[in-house]
C-alpha cells in the first residue's frame, strides 16, 4: 500500500518537473518535424523508386531507415529522461531535507525506493511506448509502412529506459545529485560507444573489439537491448545487409542478454535499496 502511495506521489511529482514539461513539448515538436520530413521523403521516394529495379525493396529500405532513425532518437530521449528526471530522486531529497518528514512515517525504506521507481517507471514507459508508436504510426499513416515486430521492439525500448532508471536510482543512493548525473550519463555514453566498438569488431572480424563490446554490454546493457529492439523494428530486408549500424542489428536478439538486462534492473535497484537503508539522513 505504501509502495502505491509513494508511486502515485512520485508520478504526480515527475509530471510537475520542468524537465518533463520541456521534454514533452520538445517531443511533440520532434514528432511534428518528423511527420513533415517523412511526408516530403515519401514524395521524393515515389519519384526515384520508379527508376529502381525493385521498388518494393527500395521503399522498405528507405522507410525502414527513416523509421529506425526516428526510433533511435526516441530511445535516446527515453534514456535522457530516465537519467535527468530521477537523478536526484534520493540524493536530492536528502540534500533538500524533504525525506526527513517521510522516512519517520510507518513506511519501510525499500517501499520508498520501489514506490519512487514505479512512479518514474510508469511515466517513462508511457513516454517511450507512446513516442515509439507515434513515430511508427506517422510512417504507417503516410505510406502504410510498419516495422516487422513493433510490439516486441517498443517493449525492449521501454526496457532500455527502465534499465537506465534503475542505474540512476542506485547512483542516487550513493552519490550527490550532480555526481550521479555525470556518472550515469557517462556510463550511458560508454555503453553506446561499446556497442559501436562491437559493431566495428564484427565488420573487421576482430575478437578483441567484439569482446570489449560484450564486456561493456555486461557493465551497462542499454545499447545491447537497443540493438535487440532494432532487430524487431528494422525491415527484414536489412537482414540481408550484414553491416551493423547504430540503427540496425545483424543478428536476432540474444534471449540470455534480455534476461540479463531484466535481472540487471532488479539487482541494481536492490543495490540502491541496500545503500539507502544504510544511509544516514
Amino acid at each position: 500500500m505504501n509502495v502505491i502511495t509513494v508511486a502515485r506521489f512520485t508520478f504526480r511529482e515527475a509530471l510537475k518537473k520542468k524537465v518533463v514539461l520541456a521534454a514533452g513539448i520538445l517531443s511533440v515538436v520532434f514528432l511534428a518535424l518528423y511527420a513533415l520530413g517523412f511526408h516530403f521523403f515519401v514524395d521524393e521516394s515515389a519519384r526515384t523508386a520508379a527508376a529502381n529495379s525493385n521498388p518494393a525493396t527500395y521503399f522498405a529500405r528507405q522507410f525502414g531507415v527513416l523509421v529506425m532513425m526516428g526510433l533511435y532518437v526516441v530511445n535516446f530521449f527515453g534514456g535522457l529522461l530516465a537519467i535527468f528526471t530521477a537523478v536526484g530522486t534520493i540524493s536530492g531529497e536528502i540534500e533538500s531535507g524533504t525525506l526527513h518528514a517521510v522516512v519517520p512515517k510507518p513506511v519501510r525504506r525499500w517501499e520508498i525506493v520501489v514506490g519512487k521507481w514505479l512512479g518514474y517507471a510508469v511515466m517513462l514507459s508511457v513516454y517511450v511506448f507512446g513516442m515509439a508508436w507515434g513515430v511508427m504510426g506517422l510512417a504507417w499513416v503516410q505510406n502504410g509502412y510498419m516495422p516487422s515486430e513493433p510490439l516486441n521492439g517498443s517493449l525492449l525500448m521501454v526496457l532500455v529506459s527502465l534499465l537506465l532508471l534503475s542505474l540512476t536510482f542506485a547512483g542516487s543512493a550513493m552519490f550527490s545529485t550532480v555526481t550521479n548525473g555525470i556518472v550515469v550519463f557517462m556510463l550511458y555514453g560508454i555503453a553506446s560507444v561499446g556497442g559501436m566498438v562491437e559493431g566495428m569488431g564484427t565488420i573487421i572480424k576482430s575478437d578483441l573489439l567484439v569482446n570489449i563490446g560484450i564486456i561493456t554490454s555486461l557493465l551497462v546493457p542499454s545499447d545491447a537491448i537497443w540493438k535487440a529492439a532494432t532487430y524487431f523494428l528494422q525491415p527484414r530486408v536489412f537482414d540481408l545487409i550484414p553491416i551493423p549500424t547504430p540503427f540496425s542489428s545483424v543478428s536476432p536478439p540474444s534471449i540470455p542478454m534480455v534476461v540479463y538486462a531484466a535481472g540487471y534492473c532488479a539487482v541494481v535497484l536492490l543495490g540502491g535499496i541496500r545503500l539507502f537503508q544504510r544511509r544516514d539522513l
Binding site: 511529482e13 510537475k16 533538500s96 531535507g97 524533504t98 526527513h100 518528514a101 519517520p104 512515517k105 510507518p106 513506511v107 519501510r108
Partner: peptide, 19 residues
C-alpha cells in the same frame, strides 16, 4: 514500523514538497 505508526516528527530543517 510499529513505533513509527505512533510517533510524529517535526524536523529541524522543515523542507517539504512545495508543489
Amino acid at each position: 514500523v510499529e513505533a513509527k505508526r505512533e510517533i510524529g516528527y517535526l524536523p529541524e530543517l522543515f523542507r517539504f514538497h512545495d508543489w
